[in-house]
């Protein structure tokens, strides 16, 4: 009896909250966590840890190329987290677009400009006095709101919101098509115009980048100065 009482508690430590979790727990109350769930937890912990480590390393490194490489770590682990959340397309797009294209652009610019070590001032006085407390307050506020809404479960959700969520869940269970099919259905039917406008935006961005980065006459001396330095 004591063990039967202990076993659900062990689950509750890992999933204290979340109304969908409680929902699913009720039929198999005394069952141990299944293999896939444990795997999911382990994968989440590994890649969330990598994410945070990469982000902290980005702050601590003084050379921009090291920061860029740790940002690549962050983005790749975020892709795994997207995969865990069932967003396969976004996971691949994250790797190709962010970890691939954008970060290659960053690394390329760092190398092109021959950016050296930054001189560390660790922020101005205004940043120390206002910025960091403000960031701490922001983080605490976000965490409080998240835990208040997500963490304390269904009781905290408004009744209408909870009903809407169960309706959505049953509807999603009813039509269990692939995520990619749903995504393309919405993207290429309902949101076709914004999608095409995005391509125009990217074209304009490319032209703008070319115009901005084009070498104009008269600023040769600055480049020469850095080359000498």
């Amino acid at each position: 009896m004591a063990e039967r009482a202990l076993a659900p508690k062990a689950i509750v430590v890992y999933l204290p909250t979340g109304r969908c979790v409680e929902h699913r727990l009720q039929p198999t109350d005394a069952a141990a966590p299944k293999n896939g769930e444990l795997m999911h937890l382990i994968l989440f912990l590994i890649f969330a840890g990598l994410c945070l480590a990469g982000a902290i390393n980005l702050l601590l490194q003084s050379h921009p190329i090291n920061s860029a490489l740790s940002l690549i770590v962050v983005m790749s682990s975020l892709a795994v987290l997207y995969l865990l959340l069932g967003a396969e397309f976004l996971a691949i797009a994250q790797i190709i677009v962010y970890a691939g294209a954008i970060m290659v652009l960053f690394v390329f610019v760092v190398m092109l400009l021959n950016a050296g070590r930054e001189d560390r001032t660790m922020g101005s006085r205004a940043a120390k006095l206002i910025g960091f407390p403000a960031v701490a307050v922001l983080m605490a506020l976000l965490a409080t709101v998240i835990v208040r809404i997500q963490g304390l479960g269904a009781a905290q959700l408004g009744a209408g919101l909870a009903a809407a969520q169960t309706a959505v869940e049953t509807a999603a269970g009813a039509q269990d098509t692939s995520n990619l099919a749903q995504l393309s259905q919405v993207l290429f039917h309902e949101l076709l115009l914004p999608f095409e406008v995005t391509s125009v935006l990217i074209l304009i961005a490319i032209l703008g980048a070319v115009v901005l980065a084009r070498k104009t006459e008269g600023d040769e001396p600055a480049v020469e100065r850095t080359a000498a330095k």
């Binding site: 769930e37 999911h40 989440f44 994410c51 835990v147």
Partner: peptide, 15 residues
Amino acid sequence: LAHEVPLAWYLLLSA
């Protein structure tokens, strides 16, 4: 992949 990691953890990581 039955979801048993609380979604709040993802949101806290995001924050």
